[in-house]
Design a protein around this nucleic acid. Structure first.
Lengths: 148, 148
DNA sequence: TATTGTTATACTCTATAACTATA
DNA sequence: TATAGTTATAGAGTATAACAATA
């Protein structure tokens, strides 16, 4: 195996482990990955229309309806009337939803600190630099693919 | 945002991008992520019982039945009789399945080379070292969690 | 008895297409 | 006309529980 392939495999392996940690959080909260993802977006953007969520999550509007239905049933969000557009609803976190989002953010930061806390700053800087350069390279590759 | 959180976010972001690249492969091959995952495991382990696949994929045996049904229907694998255990079947790639696995491995290595090919070896070594240390630290953390 | 895999059943995520209400 | 969201329908992945065949 080349050094390149080892690097990619290790990135994917770590991502898999992090996902499994998130699964534990989901089980405890009685949630699923797509629903947690929606809450995460809501935490960053604040109350949002389902159109906005559809675009942010990369799924169809119909799908958002189902995810929001589930989160309404579990008490994490409500559909509030949009102040100026009577067609639209503003998906809004309830207190329970807000608490869940906070816990999500906290556990994410906590995991990051536990994972990278012992890495010397100079090495961490190289690590982040390589990731940044690689991600940018990936974006360029994708643009070329699209153009074909 | 702390440097730790930035590092974790960048790892997850790159993993997401790689997954989207895999999605393109899946669309072209008429496959899905779980089925590709099964083929990937089969490529590494050779013909396998469904029990073995269940353990390797981390899903229930019932689920493996469904995935294998789909791959049999698409012509990627067959169920061959187990030489010594008449209860078990050996899930075996067809020529089409073998070709798909080969393409999968090749496109994975190709992506790795394009992503990391321009990174100077010394920096790539640091990058891989940090990932290795982090993954190991994660494993220790998980053991501690389990023990609680 | 224990194990391998399947049938039965149910829930979630996903998509397309047609439709309603509103802009 | 165009947009926001839902109803209708369908397929894939996931799980548990009960069962058949074999070890």
């Amino acid at each position: 195996m080349t050094a390149h392939t080892e690097a990619l495999d290790r990135v994917l392996h770590l991502a898999t482990l992090v996902q499994s940690d998130l699964s534990r959080f989901e089980r405890e909260a009685g949630l699923t990955t797509p629903r947690v993802h929606l809450l995460w977006v809501l935490g960053g953007a604040g109350p949002s229309t389902q159109q906005a969520l559809s675009a942010a999550l990369g799924v169809t509007p119909r799908n958002v309806t189902g995810l929001v239905d589930g989160l309404v049933a579990s008490g994490h969000v409500t559909r509030e009337p949009h102040p100026t557009d009577r067609r639209a609803a503003l998906v809004t976190p309830t207190p329970l939803g807000q608490r869940t989002i906070r816990e999500l953010v906290d556990s994410h930061a906590d995991l990051a600190a536990r994972l990278f806390g012992d890495v010397p700053p100079a090495r961490l800087a190289v690590f982040v630099d390589v990731l940044a350069a690689t991600t940018e390279r990936f974006a360029r590759l994708m643009v070329e693919e699209e153009a074909r």
